[in-house]
């Protein structure tokens, strides 16, 4: 009896979206697309460099592979004003908490780029007692850059890939912290 009445209630409550809802959803999507177009061209990074990969990240920001012309401005390095976190370098277990601490201070939407073999699978330290073997274990990653260390051109490519993903609305999640 109970079950039947519940089913009935559910059937009563369901309704197809009206014209107003549809217009609202379309408008929301349109605004989101415009915003994402802008976000893709202005990715300010937090440079979370902990070891050797960070040196390549510095080259990425320097004159030869100029990151600024792609909208990746290395300004101030404050997580509160950044859209992107470049996790470059081995993340030890002690550092994992600091990484999450920095990551959670960034405003949404935020994007994560995992740089180097260490952040993809642990790399050299995959069997170590004190490293996180791949930061996928602690947060969701949008773009991986393979290499040990990757060349600065690969950073450039990663930013292009990320920009395309953002502008095509492929990245929908807003707060992507798992665990």
């Amino acid at each position: 009896m109970n079950l039947e009445s519940e089913e009935k209630n559910a059937a009563d409550e369901f309704s197809y979206p009206g014209l107003g809802d549809v217009i609202f959803m379309k408008a929301e999507k349109f605004i989101e697309t415009v915003l994402n177009w802008g976000r893709g061209w202005s990715l300010w990074p937090v440079t979370f460099g902990t070891s050797c990969c960070a040196i390549e990240m510095m080259t990425f920001g320097a004159t030869k592979v100029d990151a600024d012309r792609m909208g990746v401005l290395f300004v101030g390095d404050s997580p509160r004003q950044s859209d992107l976190i470049l996790v470059s370098g081995t993340i030890t277990k002690k550092m994992a908490r600091r990484l999450i601490n920095v990551y959670e201070q960034m405003p949404s939407p935020k994007y994560v780029v995992a740089v180097g073999a260490c952040n993809i699978s642990g790399g050299l330290y995959h069997d170590s007692y004190n490293t996180i073997a791949g930061i996928d274990r602690i947060m969701q990653v949008d773009v991986h850059i393979p290499g040990c260390p990757p060349r600065p051109e690969q950073f450039q490519d990663a930013v292009k890939v990320l920009r395309e993903l953002i502008q095509k609305n492929k990245i929908e999640r807003y707060d992507k912290r798992t665990s």
């Binding site: 277990k93 002690k94 994992a96 908490r97 999450i100 069997d127 170590s128 007692y129 004190n130 996180i132 073997a133 274990r137 602690i138 665990s179």
Partner: peptide, 26 residues
């Protein structure tokens, strides 16, 4: 190491088990 890390890793009888590998402390 982190303050709440289990074990003392440079001892001979310490083994890197899956528990140790997957410990993130988060």
């Amino acid at each position: 190491l982190p303050e709440d890390w289990p074990g003392h890793p440079l001892r001979k009888d310490f083994e890197v088990t899956d528990d140790v590998r997957n410990w993130t402390g988060l």
